[in-house]
Design a protein around this nucleic acid. Structure first.
Lengths: 193, 193, 193, 193
DNA sequence: TATGAATGAGCATTCATTCAT
DNA sequence: AATGAATGAATGCTCATTCAT
């Protein structure tokens, strides 16, 4: 049910995962206790559904860019721009809830979920970088390692954002470093771009 | 009281911050409920004291290295080595508890605490890099920005560690990237090192 | 509505009375929640209707035997045989539900219901015994007291059946005791029968 | 804790087992919600403890009679007298709660409990009858079967008591039948007793 | 007639905090 | 100083009952 998921999304952004009670979601969406239990058996279930829905949305955005044969530089800068927006409006991010969910469950229980989330992020970044390779903008050097570095830096910035310790300057500087790394593997005939 | 803090440290490593109840700490340290309340008014207070104590310990380790005029390369590689050990034995880290604490409190309440923690980390890394500068091993270029990158990468790797998604390969590769960044700002007469 | 009562009968046999929720009956009969409330206002009402229906069925069986002037010994042994079958297949009995219903209601509320149920059982047994009297097989001695003993023994065996503590041997032995009591009041000229 | 068990005993007598909530016990004993959970984890646990305590009390009463070499007739009539008192004051009996407990649990879960309860009752009755045998008052004929009949009749009367369908006359008549059965196996030289 | 979504009161359980000893 | 029994507010969850369609 859309109204429940919208409300829950909002609550997870605000309070993370662990501190969220069913009451919070009830208060937010204005549906009765029993009404929610008609659709979801627990906060966990709601959270998983919220994440699934978000993944779908994200996927549609990025896959659109990739399939329309946009120039690599546009796709890349658009992606970094989106990350910047996300980090600057972090109260609207599910990152904290995601972290708390992953942390609070036994290994085995979250393995699949975590692989889906991480795999999704990794595929996105690798896709972008390989777009650059196939358009012969960048060299096919350590793409996987570079993608991991993107992930690590984005996660690291996310942590700082959660700690309210992230200024716009820091975001710009750190994303610039990622940009420079791309520059370093640009093909010579495109290097001046 | 030492025994309480030791026990609490252990518990915070194991369960993070949010899921820890007073009972957990009582069970771990063998002191009665009332006994603990004599020294600490809440789990929050115990946590802050645990973090404060850990900072002191860490500080003494790094300041020793810095003041004994060890060569920059030794200090740097030792630092990275320590990070690797920490990431490989993450069940013994307070990172998760730290994240959960930061996340779960209202902005204003954690500002000071967070500034202390981050400031501590930033000072440590800046100190190391400036050791390189003062020993004329590396150029004084964007040291602050580079230090932030270290922080961001370490936090990013920590998040992956919490998600149980960190292999030794990834740790090595990402720390290697940091090393390469140092290499890029080495003075020429030391570049072959 | 036949389908509802059939389903409810099944459920009451399986779960007794107290543990049965409207949902159980809905699941069993495939009719919607609202649909059931059209015919019955509560689980109580359904239960009473199920019992009433069962009484009618039972009555038709026994009254047939009584009016067809079957020999007393046939009727008696058939009745005991039926009790044995009932006790051996106790998962199909409403006894548990009956007990729970009687127990869980205030005295006044169940008085009529209980009198109907017990009266029905007592009349049945007395009818059988008086068939023996009128056919001059047994003496008219303390018939009422003997009928009560039958009831008491059958109820006692039923309790053991519910406790899963009833073996076929015990059933046979205890029903044999009832048979012997009949033997003791047989008229001499029929005693060898 | 004595106060909790006393209160729970009272409540189980009044409401059986299935309908009893923790709130009922809280209200009855005047101890707070949390206070009860210090000693017992659930209503089930309290019930089992109440039953265990009652068994101990009963055992001490009967074993006293048996070991003091009282005459069989005294012990028997005292036992039947006690049953009569119990059946006449049935609002103070745990029989209903016992039934509901046994009925409401899966077979395997109650097997041990049921065997203890039934075994206790059977041992008591067999002990009494064998006292008669060893004092050479009654013949050693089908003692086990007779004991089972006692159990069955007592349980049957208990069910009627629960249904509020038991008059003092019926109790007297049915217990008299049990007495007559003893008479039938008395040794001749004691038969006039 | 018939549906099933929605309601909200009620129950079991946990836990931070207090306080008499 | 130290104990741990006791409190009660808060949370997750279930279910009988209603009502718009």
């Amino acid at each position: 049910m859309r109204k429940i998921l919208d409300a829950a999304h909002e609550v997870f952004c605000r309070k993370g995962f662990l501190a969220v009670t069913m009451q919070d979601i009830i208060d937010e969406c204005g549906i009765s206790r029993g009404g929610i239990y008609l659709y979801f058996a627990s906060v966990d279930e709601i959270f998983l559904e919220v994440m699934k829905r978000r993944n779908k949305e994200r996927f549609s955005v990025i896959s659109k860019s990739l399939h329309e044969h946009e120039p690599f530089d546009n796709v890349l800068s658009e992606y970094l721009e989106r990350q910047k927006r996300r980090l600057s409006n972090f109260e609207k991010s599910l990152f904290r809830a995601y972290c708390e969910y992953i942390f609070s469950k036994p290994k085995a229980a979250v393995e699949v979920f975590r692989d889906i989330q991480l795999g999704h992020l990794r595929r996105t970044i690798v896709s972008i970088l390989q777009l650059g390779v196939s358009q012969e903008i960048i060299r096919d050097e350590n793409i996987q390692r570079l993608a991991d570095h993107f992930i690590v830096v984005i996660d690291g910035l996310s942590v700082l954002a959660l700690a309210e310790a992230l200024t716009e300057d820091i975001i710009d500087e750190q994303l610039a470093i990622l940009n420079e790394m791309i520059k370093n593997i640009r093909r010579v005939d495109n290097a001046n771009k």
